[in-house]
């Protein structure tokens, strides 16, 4: 039974990964067809995977409602809105006026406003937390100030040299640092990928029996 539970998925991942890698190096028509087909199938399976998250949420919220836990009434609202959106989207399509109101006038402003909250917390952090305590933090703050003055048009109005200095921070120092980080991350991702393909890394299995 461990053949199906443990070995078969590892072999499938290995074969699929090797076919896609081999297709990049060699040009055999059969290999190209196999690689293209597997990639197309992966796109379709990915679309199914979103349902797992949705079902998980429905499962958890239903348990909260049945047990009458704290804030259970909000869970009722969530379930109603979820199925309402799904119903309008599937029956009426995404071009339906009610769907557009839900998307343009409820979901979009809620999402943007939640993300914009970080601007407020950054503002209070700028006053209370960003301290020039040592040389490294001084460097960080100097870079931040010059790049902010480069990004905002007012920097150029104050002194035309400010955006030039800010640009040097971004296109010189930060570009060098980023390149080193990216190459390091790429090397690490290749190593991690190889570990997955040879079956050394099994965290993607999920629950263990």
């Amino acid at each position: 039974m461990s053949l199906i539970r443990r070995d078969l998925p590892v072999w499938i991942a290995f074969l699929v990964g090797v076919i896609i890698l081999a297709d990049y190096v060699f040009t055999f028509p059969g290999l190209q067809v196999a690689s293209t087909t597997l990639t197309n199938w992966a796109v379709i399976v990915t679309a199914f995977s979103f349902g797992i998250g949705a079902l998980n949420i429905i499962q958890r919220q239903s348990k909260i409602i049945i047990r009458r836990d704290k804030y259970w009434i909000y869970s009722v609202v969530l379930i109603i809105i979820l199925f309402g959106t799904l119903g309008i989207g599937l029956v009426g399509s995404i071009n339906h006026p009610y769907y557009k109101i839900l998307f343009d006038n409820v979901m979009a402003p809620l999402n943007v406003t939640m993300s914009s909250m970080l601007a407020f917390f950054l503002a209070s952090a700028a006053f209370r937390v960003f301290r020039a305590k040592n040389f490294e933090s001084i460097l960080l703050l100097i870079a931040a100030v010059f790049v902010m003055l480069q990004n905002a048009p007012i920097g150029e109005l104050i002194w035309p040299g400010l955006p030039v200095i800010g640009d040097f921070f971004v296109t010189g120092f930060a570009a060098g640092g980023n390149r080193g980080i990216q190459i390091g991350a790429a090397i690490a991702s290749i190593g991690f990928g190889v570990r997955i393909l040879i079956g050394q890394e099994k965290r993607w299995f999920g629950r263990t029996e």
Binding site: F127, V145, L149, N151
Partner: peptide, 23 residues
């Protein structure tokens, strides 16, 4: 958006400077 950014960036730089002076 960039018209608003002028004020926001000046606010941030001012907050960092004033915060460090007080500290």
């Amino acid at each position: 958006i960039m018209n608003v950014q002028n004020f926001s960036h000046v606010f941030f730089i001012g907050a960092i400077v004033i915060g460090n002076i007080i500290y």
